[in-house]
């Protein structure tokens, strides 16, 4: 009898009350009995003796908080939820040419190099093939509809135009099972180049895009040319491409 108040004050199980313990200890102490009586009227969702949230109330509040967060952030990836996209850091339809930009040309310090009229794209395989701007735009152009998905969670569909990567690889006699590296004009940074394995390099949807949504690619989207491949993280969709090399 003397040990009972100590138990209710947070003894053996801390204050984490177990249904079973309560039943076992039910006859043990006066405090415990009082508490049980306080809960009687409300059944399993019994109100605490001091008044406050019920279990159901807590579940509803927590569930609502989680649901509101999901509903107001999922819009950065789910087009149907875009109007609700209040808490997410991105709106997938805002940005130049209707598409967000994560890293601008200025941040990547390529603004001058990318606008250089003397720009050349080099594809280096068994053969080395170079293209100036006019030659790049004269290549057979394809149009694909592909999402761009940032690792930070936003994604958006876009229409891309440009030569297929595999046609450029073929011209440089790069074997079909080869892994290649696509290099940006960026001089520094962990994501200045990316490797492309055969599954993506040879996919007919993979382009070295020079256009976006019916217009020339804007500088911040990777002008003069950028990689766009299906099912690939955005940081690996290298922008401001100037070299493609066989590994």
């Amino acid at each position: 009898m003397s040990a009972a108040p100590e138990r209710t004050a947070g003894g053996r199980e801390g204050n984490l009350r177990r249904e079973g313990d309560r039943r076992r200890e039910g006859a043990g102490g006066a405090e415990q009995d009082l508490e049980d009586q306080g809960n009687l009227g409300n059944g399993r969702d019994g109100a605490p003796p001091t008044g406050g949230l019920t279990r159901r109330g807590l579940a509803v509040a927590t569930g609502t908080a989680a649901a509101v967060i999901v509903a107001t952030t999922a819009g950065q990836a789910v087009p149907a939820l875009a109007p609700l996209d209040l808490l997410a850091p991105r709106r997938p339809d805002l940005g130049p040419q209707g598409l967000p930009v994560n890293r601008t040309a200025r941040a990547a310090r390529v603004a001058v190099a990318a606008r250089d009229p003397g720009y050349r794209l080099e594809v280096v395989g068994t053969r080395r093939v170079g293209y100036d701007l006019a030659q790049l735009h004269a290549l057979p152009s394809h149009t694909v509809r592909l999402p761009i998905t940032c690792v930070e969670g936003w994604s958006a569909d876009a229409t891309w135009h440009g030569p297929r990567l595999r046609d450029l690889l073929d011209a440089a006699l790069i074997p079909v099972d080869a892994t290649i590296r696509v290099e940006s004009l960026e001089a520094h940074g962990g994501y200045r180049a990316s490797e492309v394995r055969p599954a993506h390099a040879r996919d007919p949807l993979t382009l070295l895009a020079t256009g976006l949504n019916g217009a020339d690619l804007e500088l911040d989207h990777g002008y003069p040319a950028r990689l766009i491949a299906p099912d690939r993280p955005g940081v690996l969709q290298t922008k401001w491409v100037h070299r493609v090399v066989l590994l």
Partner: peptide
């Protein structure tokens, strides 16, 4: 070697 299809796979997993 990751597949290149479905094109929306990474969009779904990262979302």
């Amino acid at each position: 070697s990751w597949p290149s299809r479905p094109v929306w796979l990474y969009r779904v997993t990262q979302g």
